[in-house]
Amino acid sequence: MHPDSGQGRVAVAVVTGAGRGIGAGLAAALSARGHHLVVTDVDAEAARATAEALDGPATAMPLDVRDASAHRAVALAAADLGDVTVWVNNAGVLSTAPAWEASDEDVAATFEINTIGLVHGCRAAVSVMRRGDVLNVVSLSGLGPTPGFATYGASKAAALSYSQALDIELAAARRPVRVRALCPDVVDTSLVSNVAHRPSAALLFTGTRLLSVDEVVDAGMGMLGSRRALRTVPAWRAALQRTSAALPGMARVAVPFVARLGERRRLSR
């Protein structure tokens, strides 16, 4: 049975960056709930592989999230399949380097994908959704300073601010579309393994362990249909990030010390 769309039609879910990792996990979880999945990724073959692995009906579409018109095309195609009740903006890139060494290309791609891409996705989702949830996968790094990840953290902070403002605007307009922001700590995915060799990635390894994809998927799925607009995983790490933001003088002393601990753990992997 498909979940009730409220209109007697098939309920459709769109997931961006669903070729692997968290996006693929969320697509599988939503498919298990009975949604028709629209699986998108900049890597068309990866999107197709995810779609083919799902138990339920799925449509794979290539999507470069930097392209606003491509988002609109996905939204219209999804709306043709049924009622879009879930839209997940998951696509993202992870860059790590001292702020002054970040390349022009990395800075541009980080903001265009992590921030502008999420904004485009939200706008496309709202244009076709009558009701339901927009789930934005953000990051704990958007809550406070993350040395080595200045560009990445700033892109996620902007994405979080946009998500929260949009949720408030939709509520004020009495539109039954909720925007949910999920902020996980470091997740054991290829995004992390691809930068783990860099000394600037030290803060990735300051926690007790990396989160699993399943943990993040469970947290995100739990937000759908709930009143919870923001969830951090784990909460204690979020508290540290917020403290660093609120007490920059203390953070200037403490964060480099913590980063040295992370560097030792990174080298011991």
Score class of each variant (00 low, 15 high):
residue 161 S to I: 03
residue 197 H to V: 06
residue 229 A to I: 13
residue 85 T to G: 04
residue 146 T to P: 00
residue 180 R to F: 15
residue 253 V to W: 12
residue 84 V to H: 01
residue 21 G to L: 08
residue 36 H to I: 02
residue 118 L to F: 06
residue 166 L to Y: 07
residue 136 N to D: 10
residue 249 G to S: 03
residue 217 V to S: 13
residue 66 R to Q: 12
residue 51 A to I: 09
residue 186 V to K: 13
residue 44 A to T: 05
residue 181 A to E: 10
residue 245 A to E: 05
residue 136 N to I: 11
residue 113 I to L: 07
residue 191 L to V: 06
residue 190 S to M: 14
residue 210 L to F: 07
residue 9 R to E: 15
residue 153 G to Q: 05
residue 202 A to C: 11
residue 26 L to A: 14
residue 185 D to E: 13
residue 154 A to I: 08
residue 38 V to M: 08
residue 234 P to K: 02
residue 26 L to D: 10
residue 265 R to P: 02
residue 13 A to D: 06
residue 261 L to Y: 13
residue 198 R to G: 14
residue 10 V to Y: 13
residue 245 A to I: 00
residue 173 A to Y: 05
residue 90 N to M: 10
residue 262 G to I: 03
residue 184 P to S: 14
residue 19 G to L: 02
residue 16 T to N: 09
residue 59 T to C: 11
residue 101 E to K: 11
residue 125 A to K: 07
residue 178 R to T: 12
residue 37 L to D: 04
residue 51 A to P: 14
residue 114 N to F: 08
residue 169 E to C: 07
residue 144 G to Y: 01
residue 16 T to D: 08
residue 43 D to Q: 09
residue 150 A to N: 05
residue 7 Q to N: 11
residue 146 T to L: 14
residue 214 D to G: 13
residue 8 G to K: 12
residue 204 L to W: 06
residue 27 A to I: 05
residue 9 R to F: 03
residue 229 A to W: 05
residue 160 L to I: 10
residue 178 R to I: 06
residue 15 V to C: 15
residue 238 A to I: 09
residue 46 A to M: 08
residue 95 S to A: 14
residue 213 V to F: 03
residue 157 A to V: 12
residue 253 V to L: 14
residue 200 S to I: 02
residue 170 L to T: 06
residue 263 E to Q: 10
residue 18 A to T: 04
residue 156 K to T: 07
residue 149 F to L: 14
residue 173 A to S: 12
residue 127 S to N: 03
residue 225 G to C: 03
residue 150 A to P: 07
residue 217 V to H: 08
residue 183 C to Y: 09
residue 185 D to S: 15
residue 36 H to Y: 00
residue 108 A to Y: 01
residue 32 A to I: 02
residue 59 T to K: 00
residue 2 H to M: 11
residue 254 A to W: 00
residue 19 G to D: 06
residue 172 A to G: 15
residue 86 V to A: 10
residue 219 A to G: 03
residue 73 A to F: 00
residue 84 V to L: 01
residue 48 R to S: 13
residue 162 Y to E: 14
residue 181 A to Q: 15
residue 151 T to Y: 03
residue 162 Y to R: 00
residue 2 H to V: 07
residue 62 P to F: 03
residue 81 L to D: 02
residue 188 D to E: 15
residue 267 L to N: 09
residue 137 V to P: 15
residue 136 N to K: 12
residue 87 W to K: 00
residue 255 V to T: 12
residue 201 A to C: 10
residue 115 T to Q: 08
residue 91 A to C: 04
residue 206 T to F: 03
residue 144 G to H: 04
residue 36 H to N: 04
residue 157 A to C: 10
residue 61 M to N: 06
residue 154 A to D: 02
residue 32 A to S: 15
residue 268 S to L: 07
residue 74 V to T: 01
residue 206 T to E: 10
residue 172 A to N: 12
